[in-house]
Design a protein around this nucleic acid. Structure first.
Lengths: 336, 336
DNA sequence: CGACCTGGTGTTATCGCTAACATCACCGGC
DNA sequence: GCCGGTGATGTTAGCGATAACACCAGGTCG
């Protein structure tokens, strides 16, 4: 077995190539003033030694890391999980490593602690997936000077923000139900302190207002299928309910089950629309019409906004929304 | 607006506390030979300046980072996503940052590239969530000397491995169906090259063998509800099928829909069991009996194994499995 | 033809920390 | 009462990169 000697450093490459370490550094950073021949010699030496630059040393001298910190809730909710995954991929492609700080609950202290951990790491920027108001509040504590982008955060706050256009998605969904002939549309909403949920309520109401339809009371739930089921049990008993827009697909699943148990056929007795387009939505009974957010686009906008801040210190257009699309399946029909 | 001066460094703390920077370092690293009074003075100075050690500088001199790299597929499959989330939380609690390298497909090249990126970062250790054989193959390329733990990987390979006891979960599920009175149990399996799927097939077969039940052919699918639906359409036409064990909950969802369309009642005509216990499983129609893996336990075992390697260079017990539990709901009944 | 630029390269200082050694006061033991 | 040990602290030397400047050859220009 060979003795583990230390990893090759820049000076080792320099020695092998017969140049100074500074020239190696120039090659690595694509400085213009290096002769082509020298450049090739250095590159050959790098390859031969399997040299890889020490990021710690570079970070020490430049004062910058190639790390982005993300604060996200420790949940497996489809939306946040998809978003995170998409962001990690986008950042990776841009040459940034992503360090994820999971938080059990989205309260002020937990988020502050996660942000602190990231600052300890001296991340180049921080992304906070802050879908509810307690999370948004915590951002007030984040010192200025740290590039920061919020995703799904508070639209009324001034920090750079990227978000799915919840209102538009909800509007389209509701409009689709009205266009099918329903007099009005009921709404099972997510938790009131979530901005996503609030935006969807808003879009739903706007669609009803636009057609002068009566606005029934919001049925409040959390995001779970369980709460959707409970809401559904109530709605199933009300014969005047013929169309329900649910704030996410799992709520819709719960509603579907409640309707099925009460013998109300979906879509012929009651039409249902969800939000998120989870992969299995097409296999609900019946296949669910829903709204699909473009998480990859959100991730790219977020990264763009963050990189802008990192390089310029400022952002030109600190607010971006991404429009979702309506996916039509078989859970909507005209009322009979 | 204040001019942004550089972050405080150890020497700043030292000056304020009236000691040398080395003493500050000793306080930070809990060295024994520091007078209590000095220690307090230094701590006060740290607090006053909001000093935070520069990890890059520390990493540079010690040659070690507090970073763990994870390689995971860019998917929102419930199992892997839960596992990742749990691991990030566990690592965070242990004071490690987690850098996630997402990979679009689990092939050899992608994984090798992700591992390289992590080595560039000089991570202290790497976790690879390698649920299928192409991923496992890629690990052969990882040079020795990098602490590495595989999750859901190849049981036949010699790298340290943590995994859910798939066979036991499948055995229990199958046994449960047989105990309910079914003559045999059909199986809709996940992709053949996934170890999880293979383990579940094995457990299912073992349970049938143990009771001398006939072993029907495996119905191959991928993990999606779509493929479960197709499998279900076939099974629904076969009157002799009274019990189906599905390799995950989404497959089960597809099967449920196919049964429902064919007018076969679950559980009275056909019993169905899934695997994973996704949060909405209790709200399928009917509520799904399934097997729940303990992802938090897997995460902790993984972290433990990795930290052992990081500190000792070796591992005593490089293979750990975590037993899942059967969750009984309403999708199982005696045959009629 | 000497002053001056400029492209290619090397030399030196520096980032903020830890390791190793140096220093010094104080202690007990022979 | 001198000597070696020990606890508390300071001093110095790196870790491996980049930045800033120095240097030198060769070409341009007045």
């Amino acid at each position: 077995m060979e003795k583990t000697s230390r990893d090759p450093a820049m000076t080792d490459v320099a020695r092998l190539a017969g140049v100074s370490h500074q020239t190696v550094s120039r090659v690595l950073n694509n400085h213009p003033n290096v002769r082509e021949q020298t450049r090739l010699r250095v590159k050959a030496a790098i390859k031969e030694l399997d040299y890889r630059p020490n990021r710690a040393a570079r970070a020490l001298v430049t004062g910058k890391t190639q790390l982005i910190g993300v604060v996200a809730q420790n949940s497996t909710l489809y939306g946040p999980a998809s978003l995170l995954s998409a962001f990690e991929e986008a950042a990776g492609e841009a040459g940034f490593a992503v360090s994820v700080g999971r938080v059990k609950v989205l309260d002020r202290d937990s988020i502050a602690a996660a942000v602190e951990r990231h600052r300890d790491q001296r991340v180049a920027g921080i992304v906070v997936i802050a879908p509810n108001s307690s999370a948004a509040d915590a951002l007030a504590d984040v010192p200025a000077g740290v590039p920061l982008v919020t995703v799904d955060g508070d639209p009324d706050r001034s920090t750079p923000l990227v978000t799915v256009d919840q209102a538009k998605g909800a509007f389209d969904a509701t409009k689709h139900l009205i266009d099918a002939g329903h007099e009005t549309v009921w709404h099972v909403s997510g938790p009131a302190d979530w901005f996503d949920a609030a935006g969807r309520v808003q879009g739903w109401r706007a669609a009803l207002d636009a057609t002068s339809a009566e606005v029934p009371p919001v049925v409040a739930a959390d995001w779970s299928a369980a709460s959707g089921y409970r809401a559904g049990q109530m709605l199933a008993r009300m014969p005047e309910v013929t169309a329900v827009f649910c704030s996410n697909d799992h709520l819709a699943l719960g509603v579907l089950r409640a309707m099925s148990e009460r013998g109300r056929n979906v879509p012929h007795d009651v039409s249902v629309v969800g939000f998120d387009d989870v992969p299995e939505a097409a296999y609900f009974i019946p296949p669910l019409t829903t709204v699909r957010p473009d998480f990859a686009a959100v991730a790219h906008e977020t990264l763009g906004l963050l990189l802008e801040q990192i390089s310029d210190g400022e952002t030109t257009r600190p607010r971006r929304t991404v429009a979702p699309t309506l996916v039509k399946r078989n859970s909507v029909a005209p009322p009979r």
